[in-house]
Simulated scan of single mutants.
Amino acid sequence: MTEISGMAATETGFVVVNDSADEEPRRRIFFLDADCAVVRTVRYPTRPRDTEDLAVDAQGALWVADIGDNNRSRQTVALWKLPPGGRRPVLHRMTYPDGPHDAEALLMAGDGRPIIVTKQGGAAGLYAPTGDLKPGLTVPLERVGQVSLPGTTTSNPFSFLGRAVVTGAAMAPDGGRVVLRTYADAFEFDVVNGDVITALTRGTPRITPLPDEPQGESITYSRDGRFLLTVSETADQPPGTKPTILRYPVPAVAPASQPPTTGAPTAAAAGGPRAERERTSLLGVVGVVGLGLFIAGLLGMARSRRNGQR
């Protein structure tokens, strides 16, 4: 589990997925207990392409977002649905209305409609299915909006590139907040009446810096909604580096233009002097078009150095 790309907290632990489908043992949905030991795995019935995020709907079903497309060459993307206690996820295919997109973030709206957030410089696109998802049917997506994140100066391995693209998303357990993350920061939006699209397109987020995470792609809420939980890929880190879940207090309600009052890292973890960040080891088992293309190209190169071209 060196390339964890999606995570959700459960009542008893966590669920995680890898973003690499190149090696067969990685192609699993991994269920972990509170100590991060693997207690169950679920295989996909067919080979996934690039699983990048996951979300849990109001009925407790798990949705795995097979939406990664570094080279922007896929004709379809997909969501895998695993009912509570299920043994076999079901594939649902979708297609973009305006050509392929790379994406790494998935949200479930209050009405159960999945929302894909694209990974691109400038404004990230929001896409949702035009109808109900059904096995064996390719459902068109529609562009339902875009989200522009405030600029920050948070330190991260990819410099300004890492502050520009969305790599993960999650909804709070009570449905009243959603969070998007980049390689550098988390942006939390308030949601009214389950309207996630309005929250993202018109809301002002609160910012939690996530400084110097190795390659942070995953984010979720703790089950009580009091903390943001993140985990990084560790494929390019020194030998023996273990994936580690990090815990950040949810920021106080304040506009993004004001300095956050909670959620900064500890000095030992990432150089910050004051706030709190707790670690739980996974125990080793586990905008302009030119700028947008430039960012996409460099990030694709960063991913390709480990995974090869998909």
Results as ranks from 00 to 15, higher is better:
252 A>H: 06
254 A>P: 01
280 T>N: 09
251 P>N: 03
258 Q>D: 02
282 L>Y: 00
276 E>R: 15
249 P>H: 10
278 E>W: 14
283 L>R: 12
252 A>G: 09
263 G>N: 05
282 L>H: 00
246 L>V: 05
246 L>H: 03
272 G>C: 08
276 E>V: 08
270 A>L: 04
287 G>N: 07
262 T>E: 08
284 G>Q: 02
290 G>H: 12
247 R>Q: 05
278 E>L: 15
286 V>N: 05
263 G>W: 07
286 V>Y: 06
281 S>L: 11
286 V>D: 03
291 L>M: 09
259 P>A: 07
260 P>W: 00
268 A>G: 12
293 L>G: 02
246 L>E: 02
276 E>I: 14
252 A>E: 10
288 V>S: 11
261 T>S: 04
244 T>I: 06
245 I>M: 07
264 A>E: 08
247 R>A: 11
246 L>S: 03
244 T>V: 13
266 T>Q: 01
252 A>V: 05
271 G>K: 05
252 A>S: 09
289 V>M: 11
278 E>F: 14
284 G>P: 02
288 V>M: 02
246 L>K: 10
292 G>A: 13
271 G>N: 10
262 T>R: 14
264 A>I: 08
295 I>K: 02
260 P>E: 01
266 T>A: 06
282 L>D: 00
274 R>I: 12
249 P>S: 04
250 V>P: 03
245 I>C: 01
247 R>P: 00
277 R>M: 14
267 A>I: 10
285 V>A: 05
275 A>E: 15
264 A>L: 08
289 V>L: 08
290 G>F: 12
267 A>S: 10
273 P>R: 14
293 L>T: 11
249 P>M: 02
285 V>P: 07
283 L>F: 02
280 T>E: 06
249 P>R: 05
260 P>Y: 06
288 V>C: 09
288 V>K: 15
267 A>V: 04
271 G>L: 12
290 G>V: 08
250 V>A: 14
248 Y>A: 13
261 T>Y: 01
258 Q>N: 01
265 P>F: 01
250 V>I: 08
262 T>V: 01
293 L>D: 09
254 A>H: 12
263 G>S: 09
290 G>T: 10
272 G>S: 15
268 A>P: 00
275 A>T: 14
262 T>A: 10
281 S>I: 00
294 F>K: 11
283 L>Q: 09
276 E>W: 15
285 V>F: 03
264 A>K: 10
269 A>L: 11
270 A>P: 00
273 P>I: 05
290 G>E: 10
244 T>W: 01
246 L>F: 08
258 Q>E: 11
268 A>W: 13
284 G>Y: 00
285 V>S: 05
276 E>N: 07
280 T>Q: 10
274 R>M: 13
276 E>A: 12
247 R>H: 06
